[in-house]
Every structure is written in structure tokens, then in C-alpha cells.
Amino acid sequence: MTQTEWVQRVIKPVIFLMCLIPLALLVWDALNNHLGANPIEKVTRRTGDWTLRFLLITLAITPARRLSGWNGLMRLRRMLGLFAFFYACLHFIIYIGIDQSLDMTEIIKDVIKHKYVTVGFASFLLLIPLAATSTNAMMKRLGGRRWQQLHKSVYAIAIGGVIHYLWLVKADLREPLIYAAILAVLLGYRLWVKQRQALPPNAVRSSIHPSAIRPTK
């Protein structure tokens, strides 16, 4: 088995099943009455948590590949991103269907009036085109460059997701701040890489003062 086959046939299916564990646990807890006194709130929170986690895991793929040098990781990125979208959909459906009972006027009012809802709602909407253009055919149709441009919006989505969480917490900010810190590292790493690439190739040498270079003659 080549490395590509190994990823496609073994690693990817195993990770696919692992990504379904949060959903399986949710169903298990629901069937066994383990969701506590306010099950709707718990399901909303857990699907929200997993949306954020999958967004961060997806954003960790590129740095992880760069640092480990293992390109096989890239074959997992789309699937992980789609799982972020999957859990976001569950989160969104609960909000629209159960919390707001499909009452459109209430939903519109809520989205306009409450900024944590605004940010969460916008982040979800921005995820849709990314999911829709995740297939190989769409990638080809858009062309690599445009596709990449479009998918850069995932940075805004992740920031929106973390802010959504920060703004809804009453007093204990510890958990959302953990997400914020991880996101800051993941985005910070990209900025750092970009800055290094922006420097001319001889930047490292030219930063040494000329007088420090011994004449070669």
C-alpha cells in the first residue's frame, strides 16, 4: 500500500468515524436521559462546541503539515471542514426550529438585535459557500486561485465563532478564551509564515551589518 492509499483506505475512514463520536454520544445521552434538566440547551452547547473544535482542527492542518512535513494530512482537511459545517448545521437547526419555533419575525428580530446572534448567524451563512464549493468539480470550476481566495473566509468564520461564544457567556470567560488563544496561535502562525516569505531571500544575510562581514580579499 502506498502512503496515499494508506491515508485514503485506512486513516481517513477511521477519522471519519471518530468525527461522528460527538454525535453518537449526544444520541446515546439523549436516549439514556443523560442530558440533564435542560436537554435542548445542552445539545445546543455541545453542537456549538464541536463546530468550534472542528473549525480549529481544520485550521490546524496546514501548520501541522508544515511543521511535520507530512503531506498526507492535507487529504483530511476537507473532511474535517465539512464536519465543522455538519455540527454547525445541527446547532443552527436547533436554534431555528426549537429555540425560535420557526417564527421568522422572532428570528429576524433576534439576529438584528443581539450581536452574539448576529455574529453566529453570519458565520454560519459564510460557511455555506465553503461547504458548497468543497467538491473537486467546484474547485476546478472556480480555479485554484479563486477557490483559495474564497476559502480564506474561514479565518473570519472562526473569529466570528469564537466571538459568538465570548459574547454569550455571562461571567466565566475561561472556556471561550481557551478557544480564542488556540485560534490566535493558528492565525498568528500564518502571519509569521507570510511575513517570513515576504522578506527577500537574502533577508537573513542582509540583516547583518555590512561592517560585520569580513572582506573576502
Binding site: 434538566a37 435542560n38 435542548i40 440547551e41 426549537i98 429555540d99 419555533s101 422572532e106 428580530k109 433576534d110 438585535k113 443581539h114 450581536k115 452574539y116 446572534v117 459574547w167 454569550l168
Partner: peptide, 19 residues
């Protein structure tokens, strides 16, 4: 009068599905 961050117009009675 809403909480500045969320609506107070409805509530979930513990044990009930819809608000």
C-alpha cells in the same frame, strides 16, 4: 426589556421542549 445581549421575551420551562 431585553438583556443587552439576549432576548427576555420567552423562556424555556424546564421539562418543556419549546419556549
Amino acid at each position: 426589556v431585553d438583556h443587552p445581549r439576549w432576548s427576555q421575551s420567552r423562556e424555556r420551562r424546564i421539562g418543556e421542549f419549546f419556549k
